[in-house]
Simulated scan of single mutants.
Amino acid sequence: MTKKQSGRTKLLVLLGPTASGKTRLSLSLAQTYGGEIVSGDSMQVYRGMDIGTAKATPEERRLVPHHMIDILDPDEPFSVADFQETARREIQAIADRGRLPMVVGGTGLYIESLCYDYRFTEAGSDEAFREEQHRFALEHGAGALHTRLAATDPATAAKLHPNDTRRVIRALEVAHLTGVPLSEHLAGQTKEPLYDLCLVGLTMDRALLYERIERRVDQMMEEGLVQEVRRLREAGYADSLVSMQGLGYKEIAAYLRGELTLNDAVALLKKSTRRFAKRQLSWFRHMPDIHWVDVTEQVNFPQQLQIIHAIIAGKL
């Protein structure tokens, strides 16, 4: 069954920082509950960006249907509002098939906007202002633009990576147009769940998480991350694209431009990914209703599954 007496669709959400083991658990849970997986990752929507985004492998996708993966070319714009609309359609279609929709990922804003009655500000746009901010970033660097946002809206700045120029500019634009920081607009959200939600969060010892991140980066390099980024650039995708500013792509592109040695690029990628995981956890800690499961002891996978099954039984 995919609905409760409330009439709301059941939705299982598995979230956690990068490299915490979501993929393995999600496949097991989907097979147990007749689920289909909706990616909650802001980068996996892009075709040709497989290694750096740690997409489920073709073999894994044959085991369980996956959605919101490979739906756009890297130069196509895709906002969180676009994600919300598209993913909600996928969730409804899965439920209509009598299957259990499962959202799996680590992009906190995307997942939160999907699960709750999350309405985006209707501030409109100011193209001249956007262009002005973009020129400022090109001239002074993304860090300087981020510092400008921190002075205007420190709460939003704390959640955005300095290299996420598009979202930094949008936050500045909202404040410019409305006189109210984006964080205050978001704080006014009621966050009423749209689904019968079961949110399961994965957590682990921070040192182990960082060790797993470093191993994952090493594995990405072995799998051909440099070749993947080179192919994208040769296909005409500019380094300035939002997609190409993603973790892994930005650092390797800098190496390919001759700005970093390969060792320095890898070290920077590991450092940036550790920081990203910290921001993910910070975001999730402020989300309501998450049932946290400690997966530090990887050998206890069967026991962890039992804990998650008990959580699901109590919610869905």
Rank of each mutant, 00 (worst) to 15 (best):
L232I: 14
E223F: 08
T190P: 15
M244V: 11
R206L: 11
L199S: 06
R206A: 11
E192R: 12
V217W: 01
E234S: 15
L194R: 04
G201Q: 03
M221R: 02
L241D: 15
Q227S: 15
D218Q: 03
A238H: 10
E228H: 13
Q189R: 10
S240N: 14
S243K: 07
I213H: 00
E192V: 14
D239R: 13
G248W: 08
A235M: 13
R216F: 01
E223Y: 09
E192W: 08
L208W: 01
L209M: 02
G224T: 10
E192C: 11
M204S: 01
G248H: 09
E234V: 13
K250H: 13
G236Y: 03
T190H: 15
G248I: 08
S240T: 14
Q227K: 15
P193F: 01
S240F: 12
K191H: 06
Q227D: 15
G236F: 06
R215V: 06
L186P: 07
Y249M: 14
Q189A: 06
G188Y: 02
M244A: 12
Q189G: 06
D218F: 02
E222W: 04
G236S: 07
V229A: 12
G236P: 03
L209D: 00
A238C: 10
E223R: 11
M221H: 02
D218W: 01
M221E: 04
R230Y: 08
E211I: 01
V226R: 10
M220W: 02
R233V: 12
L225Y: 09
M221L: 07
E192K: 11
D239L: 12
R231A: 12
V217Y: 00
R233W: 10
A187F: 08
L208A: 04
E228D: 13
T203I: 11
G201D: 05
Y195I: 08
E214D: 00
L197M: 05
Q227V: 15
D218L: 01
L202Q: 02
D218K: 01
M221G: 04
E214W: 00
L247D: 04
Q219H: 05
L232E: 09
R212W: 08
I213F: 00
V226C: 14
H185A: 09
E228C: 12
M244D: 13
E222V: 04
A207C: 09
L247I: 09
V226M: 14
Y249F: 15
Q245N: 13
C198N: 08
V226T: 14
M221F: 03
A207L: 10
A235H: 12
H185D: 12
K250P: 14
V200N: 06
V242T: 07
G248A: 13
Q189W: 04
L209Q: 00
D196L: 06
V226I: 15
V242C: 06
G236K: 04
L241Q: 15
R206P: 09
L199N: 03
A235L: 13
R216L: 03
E211R: 02
D218H: 06
G201P: 08
I213N: 00
Q245G: 14
D196W: 02
G248D: 12
